[in-house]
Design a protein around this nucleic acid. Structure first.
Lengths: 133, 133
DNA sequence: CTTGACCTTCCCACGTTGGCAAGGTCTACA
DNA sequence: TGTAGACCTTGCCAACGTGGGAAGGTCAAG
């Protein structure tokens, strides 16, 4: 039994976010003391840590809702978990490729930029002309 | 001389975004017809294309504001352009590394997940236990 | 003159997090 | 007992960039 600040410290999820997760029904509404303070058990902290870990792996809160349901479902099919994870990997890899494309282009352009007091710069030229498209 | 729809089509920037860029002073307010319609020149479309290209390279609108100022400044120092670009490359690479970490972890976990009807799954176990932290 | 395609402004939504304000509660200490 | 300070509560605003839609005005073609 602890209140929200302690649960936040124990789980790595800020008090602010715990309230937010409750407001969007990712978490069941916490029980309250007579004064209206939320209180949490070690089991609740366990759930918060699960969420925290899933956030660290880049899952959206929507994904985490599904993962939590599967986590709680002792009869789950591991295929469902795997599907969510692999879809996320695909999305991550698409994003990675996109960012790599940007970084590669910019690095190449910057390499040929004098980087001195002269105005001439291939980066500006590229932006101006559209990279030859 | 064209109105916003045509400028949008010609530049690849949506009419919605053109208005938004104007509202945040990234663009000067467009001239208007007597009826209040914005109108644009080929030169304006040129600016819009610059912005579009910079967005495609992942620059923030704040960055683009600086780049536009440099673009217009015939006396610019290419060092200023290069600095903005390289700072952006650093940010991109940091993000790439972060996403690669997530994707790598998940791919490794998913490899050992049967992906069948059994509930047992290392992905769930990892989320539960926190990846050994 | 009507129809439909365009334009205008304004508000709302997404997703996740932080910050701040105004107020209530609890705890420890004088 | 009083009070200070640390905690809790709710609520609103901000970010970032984009899209959607409503309600209404304008324009061109038939």
């Amino acid at each position: 039994m602890m209140n929200i600040g302690k649960a936040a410290a124990a789980s790595g999820v800020s008090a602010k976010m715990i309230r937010y997760y409750e407001s969007i029904d990712l978490l069941a509404a916490a029980r309250r003391t007579e004064a209206g303070y939320r209180f949490y058990t070690d089991e609740d902290v366990h759930v918060l840590r699960f969420i925290r870990r899933a956030r660290d792996l880049g899952f959206s809160l929507a994904d985490i809702g599904e993962l939590l349901a599967l986590w709680r479902d002792q009869g789950r099919a591991s295929a469902d978990v795997k599907r969510i994870a692999l879809e996320h990997v695909v999305a991550l890899e698409r994003k990675i490729a996109e960012l790599q494309g940007m970084a590669g282009t910019l690095r190449a352009l910057a390499e040929h930029c004098h980087g001195d007091t002269r105005p001439d710069c291939p980066i500006i030229t590229d932006l101006d002309a559209g990279g030859g498209r």
